[in-house]
Design a protein around this nucleic acid. Structure first.
Lengths: 241, 241
DNA sequence: ACAATTCGTGAATAAGATTCACGAATAAAT
DNA sequence: ATTTATTCGTGAATCTTATTCACGAATTGT
């Protein structure tokens, strides 16, 4: 009598099939040209079936973004659990961002879009909730590193809450994502290696908080060496460079 | 024979009428519910007339965002031209951001949306160009202040280009906008006074670049005094607090 | 006064998202 | 084994909106 279970399993697997097809279509034809009927066609199901899984197009997009976010968070987790000084782990978070965006070029574009009022409000409460749950661990991870740094005497809060420092670093990262996205959208806008720049600014901001030892940001070689070390020790399987 | 001129003038004024109506509709009913037919109805013109002015809905949104950007840039210009030390002018830029967003709560939401791949690509080349032209002065203004600071011996580049420092500050600002937007979109997300925090992080980051005298970020009172001074001296007419 | 041109109009069209009545497949009951 | 009930995928039909364009009124030129 496992038929019911098999059915259930098939239904769940199908959601993944739809998401994969949608992702392929976005990659090949762009978010702009994504059509529900094309997703159905590509996955060889009827449109009605697609709507059994997703309340709306926006819902599907949010589901897609949530999957990305889970992978993104998993990268952060590796950085967080790395056995190293808080200072290096903080840069590792930035490197995780860098690697992730390079490997998933559509990620931010989609993320940007789904967090738009228009899309967000058009999606179902469940998907919104799933998205929030997926991104929930991030703040704790970063705050945790800041607190570790303080505990180890490497960082001074200087009257700020750990969460506020965290917010500054987060803004830096979100702003850099914006910038990377702008490179794709604007024609003549081009900043060389924006995520490397973000790593440096992370160090500079932490310098501002009396992070010890202070980083000599003039020495790009030191940063590059650290990035390479992080790639080797933390993201071995993902770094080809 | 001024009839032709009058006609021409009427045509140009109408564009403003459409934009005003669209803005009102967005304020009252949200971007999500904005419909071209409603804009036409509200402005008491036919849809066809609306389309004589805007190639598409996205085109209209981009035009709307460009107007906002011009006002935004005008605020920055006031900060830039303020007769004060580079250090204070840099904070004045941040304060300009703060005041502008508070007075135009829909601004960033719209800006976020139009810079989305989906909207950007759907708009006409002319509007895109107008948007780029409108935001063009910003980078120069900020880089200018950084260079002034370096020339006055208040800031060390430490091996970074002025543009790179500028990018860091820009990322901080863009990230904060993101955060402010998130407060509107997400239900339970709430950061007290995000722009004040941005001002502080601007100071911290500049501390990291050896800005002199270094700012004691622990002293929130000093920052608040500076913000109040900027409101009085630069944005007198816009600050009620 | 008449022809030519410009310009606003809104009904018609187009594109795409979303629905839902249907029938096939499966499960339950006899 | 046969009948009845239920579940589930289907895709043609519907609905919503953006967008177009043929028309006629207003204006200009002769």
């Amino acid at each position: 009598m496992g038929t019911k279970e098999r059915r259930q399993r098939e239904f769940e697997d199908r959601e993944q099939v739809f998401l994969d097809c949608a992702r392929d279509l976005i990659r090949d034809e762009g978010l702009l040209n994504l059509q529900m009927s094309r997703i159905a066609e590509k996955s060889e199901y009827a449109v009605g079936t697609l709507y059994k899984h997703f309340a709306s197009k926006e819902d599907l997009l949010l589901a897609l973004a949530a999957v990305d976010t889970e992978k993104h968070v998993a990268m952060f987790q590796r950085a967080t659990q790395w056995q190293a000084k808080a200072r290096d782990r903080m840069v590792a978070i930035a490197v995780a961002d860098m690697i992730f965006v390079r490997r998933n070029p559509d990620f931010f574009r989609l993320g940007q879009y789904v967090f738009t009022e228009v899309v967000w409000k058009a999606a179902s409460t469940e998907r919104r909730q799933a998205m929030l749950v997926a991104s929930d661990p991030i703040a704790d991870m970063v705050t945790g590193i800041v607190n570790d740094g303080v505990a180890a005497g490497e960082l001074e809060l200087r009257g700020m809450a750990a969460e506020e420092i965290c917010t500054g670093l987060w803004a830096l990262s979100a702003g850099t994502h914006n910038l990377v996205h702008a490179e794709g959208v604007l024609e003549d806008f081009n900043i060389r290696d924006p995520y490397r720049l973000m790593c440096r600014h992370t160090q500079v901001m932490l310098n501002g908080y009396g992070w010890r030892p202070l980083v000599d940001v003039g020495d790009g070689a030191a940063l590059d060496a650290l990035i390479k070390r992080i790639c080797n020790e933390v993201f071995d399987d993902l770094c080809s460079e």
